[in-house]
Design a protein around this nucleic acid. Sequence first.
RNA 1: GGCGGCAUAGCCAAGUGGUAAGGCAACGGCCUGCAAAGCCGCUAUUCUCCAGUUCAAAUCUGGAUGCCGCCUCCA
Length: 492
Amino acid sequence: MTLTIYNSLNRSKEPFETVDPGKVKMYVCGPTVYDSCHIGHARSIIVFDVIYRYLTFAGYDVTYVRNFTDIDDKIINRANEIGISPAALAEKYIQEFYVDMDALNVLRPTSEPRATEHIGNILRLIEILIEKGIAYAAEGDVFFSVDKFDGYGKLSGRKLDDMEAGARVEIDLRKKNPFDFVLWKASKPGEPEWDSPWGKGRPGWHIECSAMSKDILGASLDIHGGGKDLIFPHHENEIAQSEAAFGKTFVKYWVHNGFVNINHEKMSKSLGNFLMIKDILKVYHPEVLRLFLLSHHYRSPVDFSDETVRNVAAGLDKIYAMLERVEKFLGKLPDTGSEKYATSPDAEKDFWSLFTNAMSDDFNTAQGIGVLYDAVRNLNKILDSCEKAEPEHPDDAVNRQTISNECLGIMKIGNILGILSQPPGDYFARKKEAVLERQSVDAGLIEALIQERKDARKSRDFKKADEIRDRLKAMNIEIEDRPEGTIWKVIS
RNA sequence: GGCGGCAUAGCCAAGUGGUAAGGCAACGGCCUGCAAAGCCGCUAUUCUCCAGUUCAAAUCUGGAUGCCGCCUCCA
């Protein structure tokens, strides 16, 4: 199984070969912690969470670093507005970040460095650049001289000459080239500051990633990821800093995820349509959000709308309903930790390997989810035929083995995607609770109505029974008459 | 102005040279007192349009139209 990855640097899919065999060094740009995380953050983090899970599954020893930018203009401004220290503001949003991530079933990276913990490394890196004549100090600021780095623009496809025409930012006369960017910023009174050879100040935005990745992973990384918008200037500048300083290829594979739009509009402050993760999770199960985001290729834009997400919720219900069915049939679900999946002799029906094929092609989760639904349908079919058979059916043991194995494959797919992580009973219970609360419906009343309908059915008063069913339906409650009794579900 | 992306059924979406995955919705069937759930079948002779390359194109090339992103903080 050869893994290919789309590399933004060369704009093509390439076979994945690590710098050190068997080891993956992966760095992903994390959030600037000045506000709550929105769905755009969720996409980036979930995409790379799945890449991390998949690479680990594929047998790589993955070191995954995701940083926090905890010092920056936006943090300082916001802290001043609320009247707390920038450090306290950053800490508050880091804690909130963890609440969101845990809810979304996002694995913790190997390392989560913060810019303020690496000031020493940042200063050393700037000094190297100054010694090499690539950076220069001016009135307490330090700038990177883009003319001194030949490869400037290779990631974003920009040429310095072409960009001059479009320059409309006020030109800083201290810069040798208008595109020179700041490595170190002199502090204004009252701002957080650290001592440096150029006076008190703080790091520029781009330098932290170069310094921290070098410190934790070394000068050359296998994968560097982030949102598409970071390509220019952030990642372009990281390349310039790291390669100019250390003289080695900084990153082998650049991976960038696409944006999330809301009802066909870009999220923006002027439209006021930022969707925060915590608000979405009030309405949708976290795995619905994961499944929704992963149903689209990670490089394509996705459009978040209630209609689309509700469709995904229906799909997740379907998968959990199947798990519940298996649980009932076997008495318990297979254990992905201890039980081993057996490859199917029929390659067309070996859903697990079809899934890994899709994932090996540039992490095509959308195609992989298609395989997942195929597998669910296939297993439901097997269950249909087994449930019809007599309990003493001679093939029973074989059937149980088949069902268990097929289910195991589905659950393994769930593990990679970070879904199907809870017992189906809990999933449906949680869903009921959320809907009942939102609609202020009482579970006791529902049970009473179902009992009443049961009595009516017993006396073959179907008219009354149907009336009760309609009444429940009006309450967004749907019932299913199963062989073992009537159960009810909420319609979301 | 510079750079880049996208256009596939009612909706969402995969598919980068070999004859259109999957989901939601709709419809028909099995099942059911009737439903629901599940399964089966059906739903794009065709992939925005035009021209070209090829035995073969949704996939490659050129052009047109439409939509979007980055170039300024942004996932």
